[in-house]
Write a protein that binds this DNA or RNA. Structure first.
Lengths: 232, 232
DNA sequence: GACATGAATGGAACGATGTTCCAATAGAAT
DNA sequence: ATTCTATTGGAACATCGTTCCATTCATGTC
């Protein structure tokens, strides 16, 4: 736990949020962490780099934040909350669910490290936000009580799986390649597989080469929604 | 790359596979790594612990293996290949797909670190095995060409998502709690959420507390298969 | 059997990381 | 002005993955 977390939060009447303009704060630290993660990928976030970016020392950071894990979790929660907040909820439930899925996908597209973190620590505010956004609309869709839990679970786990895939792809991109050359190289590997052992994968190679991640992701959501409709 | 990988593999005529009974080998190293991972979780696999377990030094290990990443990937491939090999392929396609999914689930249940690794590095032999096993059966199911890629993608990403969830849960278990007390604590948190903001999650809390992971996983597979059937 | 050669070994050493510790400072309260 | 506490910055520690290298082992050659 951060030392600040243990200290009393109560202040005397003259409570001012900022002591000076350049004061360190949990919020500034999280914002700086997001900057580092966005620009340099997952292992660009080191305590030393963070301290340098904020012109301070590691000790000061650990006063506001318990450890690196909490920092990553907080950064992820912030990104997901922002993404979920932007969803317009007026539409029909089916469209709303697609909008939520699209929102998560796009957020992870911009911040790939979020995908890895969602995966590493589910059972966190960020995931709660997603479950609620999806599940609430399932109820509105008229999915019977008994099927709601499994249906929401299927959708959320699917979203989680795609999240992981995207994060992994982004790691490959950091290593130099851009998306299309990377996919082309994987497709090339697929095409050189033994036709006797991997007939299906070989057939999929050309489609892998020039498919649209986002469209395929949404196609999967539609597939699951179609499945859910059958038990309705 | 491991130094051994660079050295010539060719031997003179009298090629003996083993120089002495206690000789180190890539296979023995991978087996030892699996042991460490199974008994102590993901961060029990350190090069030092591995060296101690094998009664050797780190340098000897790096002669056979390029780096820790390759070691983890190889260990994962070994576990998944074993799991996929055990699938009886005689049954009807639908049952076969369920069997494959069940196989992956059970393998990750026994070796939770596999879930994390599958997630960290898709596009690897282990994932190929899964894609082929699932996709091949989709063709046998009669899914039209145009829908095969998206259908396989949906199933595999769903499996991947559950894999991640299981790995995350296992990490919590290493931290002391067993499954039921862990789920109970999460459910308790869910029940204390603001009913105005999280009505759905709150309602799901009791079902979370005593649901069966494996059954829910298979329910999700059935849901997706039902969705796939609608486009057939 | 002695020698030469290259494969294989084991452990010391390096650089980077997360975290802790603590002397020094800044701000608020009296 | 003084005291007290919150906060800071950076040195120090433990641990990790990896590299380096002197040494040992097994084998083919004479």
């Amino acid at each position: 736990m951060s030392r600040r977390g243990m200290a009393t939060r109560t202040r005397t009447k003259t409570h001012r949020t900022e002591r000076r303009t350049d004061a360190l704060s949990r919020e500034r630290i999280i914002a700086a962490a997001i900057e580092l993660l966005d620009s340099g990928g997952e292992n660009a976030l080191t305590v030393r780099a963070l301290a340098a970016h904020l012109a301070t020392g590691s000790g000061a950071i650990y006063w506001h934040v318990a450890d690196k894990g909490e920092l990553l979790a907080a950064a992820t929660d912030a990104v997901i909350a922002r993404a979920m907040g932007g969803i317009v909820s007026g539409a029909k439930p089916r469209e709303a669910i697609r909008a939520v899925a699209r929102g998560v996908f796009d957020a992870i597209d911009v911040h790939p490290w979020v995908g890895a973190q969602l995966f590493r620590e589910p059972w966190r505010p960020a995931m709660l936000e997603i479950i609620e956004s999806v599940g609430g609309r399932l109820q509105a869709l008229g999915v019977p009580q008994a099927a709601q839990f499994d249906s929401a679970s299927a959708l959320v786990h699917y979203i989680l799986g795609v999240a992981g895939q995207n994060a992994a792809n982004a790691r490959s991109h950091v290593a130099g390649m851009d998306r299309s050359t990377f996919l082309a190289s994987v497709a090339a590997q697929w095409e050189e597989l033994d036709p006797a052992k991997y007939p299906f994968v070989r057939q999929m190679a050309p489609q892998l080469r020039d498919h649209d991640d986002r469209a395929q992701f949404l196609a999967g959501v539609d597939l699951i929604l179609a499945g859910i409709k059958t038990v309705r």
